[in-house]
Nucleic acid binder design. Structure first.
Ligand SMILES: Nc1ccn([C@H]2C[C@H](O)[C@@H](COP(=O)(O)OP(=O)(O)OP(=O)(O)O)O2)c(=O)n1
Ligand SMILES: [Mg+2]
Ligand SMILES: [Mg+2]
Length: 978
DNA sequence: ATCCTCCCCTAC
DNA sequence: TAAGGTAGGGGAGGAT
């Protein structure tokens, strides 16, 4: 109460707030209208009271950060998007979490945002004295526990501000953390890392994140290996090397009886596939020089695992993910991908201690290269799967070495791998890839298994469905839905319980067929040897915490640049850009359990067709922002973003992809390529080093250019007349610039964007951005009209209803708006606000629910597959649900709501209008034209009797739209509304 | 029918 | 604390 005392706000204060609220839309309009490429924003200078003051806003404040930013700029101050020790004079925060309070340095001042408001109100720089928070802490460090107790009253004082729900946890964690004597040293050691260590606002975030992300490592190395194998395949030197190695092997082989007995029935048709995979790869690598450790349970995590605890206390449950765990750990039920906390718990139950080792990316590289090269020394019939795994077609090799049992060779091969890498691996052999892969599972750890001819049926029958590649919990769940009386587990059950037709109905045509085949051990795939990328993308769903659109823009710039680099590296350009966002579900807490994680989100994506093949970072950035603006989301709620380039075309290869033997570059990820790969195997027979062989290779494009262009032009209509062919520009030194110029001349069209409406929506978006930060007590004192507006906006976010597609223009048939049973689970607002134009709300909403279920099942319980599939809402059932608006379904309720709406607003808000319009269309689709008719009549009557003149025009548009829809349904008829 | 967009799922 | 990326297959349902 102190900060914004009642006395202060009386006349002046609230008028100002009102004005402030009213001015908001205009200001935000300005902000979003400005050139996106440039973050520098012009602000009208109103005073200079904050001259020399710079602030850093942390946590959730009221008003929100972007408002504070504007206020600072308007009054001569500086706003920093990211904390920097030297530049920032004040932290602005209403509720620093304890973790951050702990790290405050002696001179750091945390000031309540009210200070800024009050300064502006009085038009002078006030002392921060009365606004400082956590003061005691900053004066006497090293006595954290005491300090905190003295801080308590301070917190109480600020209790009329938003207090994060995490507060309690923080309090609880105090005793333990504060007693550590090394606490203060830690603080001093931290420098720029100071606060909010690294979220996506930090300029180095992306770099750091990618460097540390294991999943990024996996993705990038998988591609790298595919490229590597493909490159090698075209090298004659390497083929000679293989011949030599095979010859050597043949000479030193010591055959036993089984070798002489082994025969392929038909050397032309029979196949021997091998799937080979390193055992607990990351752990094996990390322990390859201390194999004595391997008897105890080990996991690879980012967390050191020190905080391991003997209690179940919430705050010590580590959400650091286990990348890989060894077999000693698996014995206790620990699995890859499991949270460390859970693993520690499992260990504790067995009186064991889990050893946590850090990632050794350099080691992974070395071992992975050795692993690949050891195999590739014998054959090029290899399909890379990942850094620790590949398929090999052994047929030809075994024929060459005959008489030889395949397992004899595999034993030798695995021995050699073990020798070279000091890491174990396992291999599965069979007549097709599927069975080979399943055999590997059987073989692990450190073993091999051959599903020989005649044993295939027996083998497949006992396999678990979940072990089939491509079948996960979701698909299994779908099957389970149809057989609730059995627990479906094995392939045998699939064989017996489902006909092909059934499977196709349940899972779709292709997946049905695939599962039908797989459950019978049938797999007709062959090694795919021609690797052609179909998409190149970058996703970040971690550490995404923005407060202003500018911060987001800055991050997009980095993403675009990174994506550009990847395209370059892959020598690809693309014609299509897809932007994907993840937005915090409204029912999800602001901060998820996992630190800096994305939590439960609603996802949306949208693509744009570019008019030419591009890889330019600026274009990517520009288009991304354009696409981004078509979504409706609250910047602070953004939790993830992804850019993807598709419709790729090689910049060096023949267009028709008819494999011009040329030149494929090694698409390697620089972050992880910390040292040159070790290429020598023990036997000193080497394969060319991947990176130098292909990355630097000059490409022979000139000769092919004209034909390439000719072919391309006949193949695609991707060039508008008069446009310079990018293929030609390609070879010019100023290529990028020209491309950009060209692009700017002919920007791709955004089919349904309507500028006016766009802007309108963004304003609304910005408005909704604030509503969460409005305190209840504040709300109550607002004038009725404003209160209503806020209430409506809030409703929109919590009710199950829909929001019109971008541009609001296109009329789409909307079949089903809502389902009350979903209401609490899925955030309709995010889903619907971001719904694609051309899709029904129904579908998107249903998907969202499904996803919610799956995520609950897969993520929260993902290591506990027993807990799944309960409340599945039948889709056809959903279609029968009443449409509703703001939770109202009955005619009377809706009428009451309408009346309130019309009564309290002089002018209808577009969001509300759209909401209503779509509700009416829902009703039509629900064959309740009668209700539509009554509601429209009623509304018109209200507008008339309450003399809301400004409503007429907008409402007429709504009516026209509804009429049109009505006409479509009823053969051109119109409703009589007179 | 087939294509297109926007998803979802799976795998490492 | 923690580093939840990405490629590719495929389905739903509207557009053509
Ligand atoms: N959820 C996962 C799965 C895997 N990986 C990483 C770590 C693994 O070591 C590597 C290889 O994955 P595998 O599926 O081959 O698993 P492992 O090699 O660890 O064990 P296995 O012996 O079962 O192959 O990928 C990961 O980071 N997160
Ligand atoms: Mg493995
Ligand atoms: Mg593997």
């Amino acid at each position: 109460m102190a900060g914004r005392g009642a006395g202060q706000r009386g006349d002046n204060g609230w008028g100002e707030w009102g004005g402030y609220m009213a001015a908001k839309k205009r200001k935000l309009e300005e902000q979003f209208d400005k050139d996106c490429m440039n973050n520098v924003q012009q602000h009208e200078r109103k005073s200079n009271i904050f001259h020399g003051i710079s602030i850093f806003v942390d946590g959730h404040t009221e008003p929100p950060a972007d408002e504070l930013k504007k206020l600072m700029m308007e009054h001569g101050g500086i706003y920093h998007a990211y904390y920097s020790k030297d530049k920032v004079t004040y932290f602005i925060s209403n509720n620093l979490p304890y973790a951050k309070i702990r790290k405050l340095k002696p001179n750091d001042k945390v000031v309540n945002s009210q200070w800024i408001i009050d300064c502006i109100k009085q038009n002078k720089l006030l002392s921060t004295h009365d606004y400082e928070m956590y003061k005691d802490k900053t004066k006497s460090r090293g006595q954290t526990e005491l300090n905190f107790k003295r801080m308590e009253p301070m917190k109480l004082i600020t209790s009329d501000f938003n207090v994060p729900n995490s507060d309690d946890e923080e309090n609880n964690s105090l005793e333990k953390t504060s007693s550590s004597s090394s606490e203060t040293e830690e603080i001093q050691d931290e420098d720029d890392d100071h606060l909010s260590v690294l979220d996506a606002k930090h300029p180095k975030f992306l770099e750091t994140f990618l460097k540390r992300s294991r999943l990024h490592y996996l993705s990038s190395t998988a591609v790298a290996k595919k490229v590597y194998v493909q490159d090698l395949r075209q090298k004659t030197e390497h083929r000679l090397l293989i011949d030599k190695r095979r010859e050597e092997l043949k000479n030193k082989l010591q055959r036993t009886e089984r070798d002489y007995l082994f025969k392929l029935n038909d050397e032309k048709k029979d196949k021997i596939y091998m799937h080979i995979d390193m055992d607990c790869f990351f752990v094996s690598v990390a322990t390859r020089n201390q194999p004595e450790l391997r008897d105890q349970p080990i996991a690879i995590t980012h967390s050191k695992g020190n905080k391991s605890t003997t209690s179940n206390e919430h705050q010590f449950f580590s959400r650091s993910e286990i990348s890989s765990c060894n077999y000693a750990a698996r014995q206790y039920g620990i699995r890859n991908g499991m949270y460390l906390g859970k693993a520690q718990e499992l260990c504790r139950n067995h009186q064991a201690k889990l050893l946590c080792l850090p990632y050794d990316y350099e080691g992974f590289h070395i071992v992975s290269d050795l692993f690949y090269n050891t195999v590739l020394n014998y054959t090029l019939d290899v399909e890379a799967v990942s850094c620790d795994e590949m398929y090999v077609d052994l047929t030809e090799l075994i024929i060459y070495l005959k008489p030889l049992h395949p397992l004899t060779f595999v034993s030798l091969l695995r021995e050699e791998i073990q020798l070279n890498t000091k890491c174990p691996c396992s291999a599965g052999l069979a007549s097709n890839m599927l069975l080979a892969r399943l055999a590997t599972r059987q073989a692990k750890p450190n073993g091999q298994y051959y599903v020989e001819k005649g044993y295939e049926q027996e083998f497949i029958s006992k396999q678990k469905i979940l072990d089939l590649p491509g079948i996960g919990l979701s698909l299994l769940d779908k099957l389970q839905q149809n057989y609730s009386h059995h627990t479906i587990e094995t392939c045998k059950q699939i064989q017996n319980l489902f006909s092909l037709e059934q499977l196709k109905t349940i899972l779709g045509k292709k997946q049905g067929q695939t599962i039908y085949d797989m459950s019978r051990g049938i797999d007709m795939r062959t090694l795919s040897k021609d690797y052609l990328p179909k998409s190149i993308s970058i996703d970040v769903n971690y550490g995404i915490r923005f407060q202003t659109f500018d911060e987001l823009t800055l991050f997009i710039k980095q993403l675009s640049l990174e994506l550009h680099k990847r395209l370059k590296q892959a020598e690809q350009k693309g014609k299509q850009l897809t932007v994907k966002i993840r937005v915090r579900c409204s029912d999800a807490p602001i901060e998820p359990e996992k630190f800096m994680g994305c939590g439960k989100t609603d996802d949306s994506s949208r693509l744009i067709n570019l008019h030419s093949y591009i890889d330019d970072p600026t274009i990517i950035e520009l288009e991304t922002i354009k696409l981004l603006k078509q979504f409706h989301f609250i910047v602070a709620d953004l939790r993830g973003i992804g850019l993807s380039i598709t419709q790729l075309q090689s910049t060096t290869k023949n267009i028709h992809g008819k494999d011009t033997n040329g030149t494929r570059t090694l698409f390697e990820c620089n972050q992880f390529r910390v040292s040159k790969p070790v290429i020598s195997t023990d036997n000193n027979q080497n394969i060319d080093q991947p990176s130098e062989s292909s990355v630097t290779r000059k490409r022979p494009i000139q000769q092919e250019q004209t034909t390439a262009i000719a072919r391309k032009l006949t193949r695609h209509d991707c060039y508008t007349p008069g446009q310079i062919d990018p293929e030609v520009m390609n070879e010019l030194p100023t290529q990028i610039r020209q491309e950009l110029e060209e692009y700017l001349k002919n920007p791709p069209s955004l089919p349904e964007s309507n500028l006016d409406l766009d802007r309108n929506e963004i304003v609304e978006k910005s408005f909704t951005q604030v509503i969460d930060h409005i305190d209840e007590s504040v709300l109550n004192e607002l004038p009725p009209e404003m209160r209503h507006e806020i209430a409506m906006a809030k409703k929109l976010r919590t009710i199950e209803s829909k929001y019109p597609p971008i541009g609001g223009k296109r009329l789409v048939p909307i079949t089903n708006p809502s389902n009350p049973t979903i209401k609490d689970k899925s955030n309709a607002f995010n889903v619907l606000m971001n719904s694609p134009q051309k899709q029904t709300i129904t579908k998107k909403t249903l998907n969202s629910i499904k996803k919610w279920r799956t995520e609950t099942i897969l993520h929260e319980e993902r290591n506990d597959p027993i807990v799944r599939n309960e409340q599945n809402v039948n889709q056809s059932e959903k279609l029968k649900q009443q449409p509703n608006i703001a939770g109202c379904t009955s005619l009377n309720d809706v009428k009451l709501m309408l009346r309130e709406w019309i009564e309290t607003s002089d002018e209808p808000n577009q969001i509300d209008l759209d909401l209503f319009q779509n509700y009416l269309i829902d009703l039509l689709n629900f064959y309740n034209a009668e209700m539509v008719h009554q509601l429209l009549i009623y509304s018109l009557l209200q507008i008339k009797t309450l003399t809301k003149i400004k409503w007429n025009e907008k409402f007429q548009i709504l009516i026209n739209t509804v009429q049109k829809h009505f006409g479509q349904m009823y053969g051109g008829a119109t409703m009589d509304l007179s």
